[in-house]
Design a protein around this nucleic acid. Structure first.
Lengths: 247, 247
DNA sequence: TTTCTCTGTGCACGTTCTTGCCGCTTTGGA
DNA sequence: TCCAAAGCGGCAAGAACGTGCACAGAGAAA
């Protein structure tokens, strides 16, 4: 294996995936990690890649919003990890937006297959970048505060699909009022998302428990899984356990 | 074994395998390593191969990766600034994807009104964040390497709209072959974009001038404005000035 | 035919490049 | 705060390189 070949391989891979992981490369190319590191160093000197901890990324593709300030990042990562356990290979998924969903998209396994429908451009980009699922972005008017696509075109597009699992975040959930949101348009989109899915998982940090917002999305009975950062047997979740599977 | 024979053998092998390893060649041809080295040296002088440590690689195979530009960020910003001059308040815009377009979205005036349709999630997010234009994201399957939405849903969605100005990037443009791209799906999307717009502006760094890719998007006549980082009266653009407005 | 020259080839030698390994430091997640 | 993974610099073995030199064979000239 010529050095040149390796360099081409790496650049090519970066062009299509926007990133490479050093440890994977050394397996794929059958050379030591040190050699890969040196390759990446060389390529960086030539400006073809940008070296990062663990590998390299494309110099052309810069992700905006990466430094997006995430509130309660740790908790949200925890939730995303748990949610991953109900995602199986080959599933058709449908997601809303929000920071929890972006965290989930970030940790999707690279080899995951299936299709991911989403109304969130951020989720779409992250998912496409990290994993090999087919990503379909449902288009529409971009809502400014939530950064998800809304409007009639979204509703009609969602009406045409049928998926295995819908993954949703929320701004409020309570036993009595169910899932609630403060934005009417967003709530309409969420209604449509739930309707299109066989099962629905709600991903929410525990501080939203008991919060009621202006607009109702659905009753709790419409939810199959509730994923929070708490232990499933936490007292705060006791009432919810009767209605949906808590994890 | 004549020198000539060896040279032919090497060129042939490089054309089919894109590389040769010197140590292998000296076994296959039954000559010493030194001879092979001298052969490769000669062939490099003639431009038939590119010598690398351990052997040689094809000059055709090698080139595409070299043209991967990095310093272009400044040029792209320059292009975006120029493109801004043809964007007026209240316009309905339609854009493709690519780094130039993202730069443009980043510098959209905050008070700009109008509607921006786009197939690029990145452009949509940047535009929505920076300016007050209404952003409509045209959804579809997210193409992994170009990060734009593609597929039939895009085509049909675009077919339903009519806009004032289409802003496009490209991977190649030449007088004879017009606008060309290396991805068939992307080229189809671009065709649809152009069709939906009253006027089309092409934003491209000068490196792409004279470059021809696999798939044709349209002829140069379909373009109204050509925006590069060069001065409009630059020699390289002389032929283009007859066909479209260059700025 | 003999001799000379020129080119192509192989060999030897010292130099440079590449690569894997080792120990130590840094980084980032738990 | 701790720990595993990643990064870094240096080292050494081996591969590849360049150069000079010798030799052989072909063709030209004597």
């Amino acid at each position: 294996m010529l050095q040149e070949e390796r360099h081409n391989f790496i650049v090519q891979k970066i062009n299509s995936h926007n990133k490479v992981v050093a440890s994977e490369l050394c397996q794929q190319l059958g050379v030591s990690l040190d050699t890969i590191r040196r390759d990446i160093k060389e390529l960086e000197k030539k400006g073809k890649v940008i070296k990062v901890h663990g590998g390299a990324v494309s110099p052309n593709f810069h992700q905006p919003f990466q430094q997006l300030e995430v509130y309660a990042k740790h908790e949200k990562k925890e939730i995303a990890k748990k949610a991953l356990t109900i995602i199986k290979d080959g599933m058709t998924l449908l997601t809303g937006g929000g920071t929890v969903m972006v965290e989930l998209a970030r940790i999707l396994p690279e080899h995951l297959t299936g299709t991911l429908f989403t109304v969130s451009p951020l989720v779409a980009l992250e998912a496409a970048q990290r994993s090999s699922v087919e990503v379909v972005l449902i288009g529409g008017r971009l809502a400014r505060n939530s950064y998800i696509c809304t409007g009639t075109s979204v509703a009609s597009a969602i009406a045409e699909i049928q998926v295995d699992l819908c993954l949703l975040g929320t701004n409020g959930l309570s036993i009595k009022e169910g899932i609630t949101d403060f934005d009417w348009e967003v709530s309409q989109v969420k209604k449509a998302l739930i309707k299109a899915a066989a099962k629905t998982a709600l991903l929410s940090i525990s501080e939203k428990l008991g919060i009621v917002q202006k607009v109702q999305v659905c009753r709790l009975e419409a939810i199959d899984y509730l994923v929070t950062e708490l232990e499933p047997d936490d007292d705060k979740l006791s009432q919810y356990r009767n209605i949906c599977k808590v994890l």
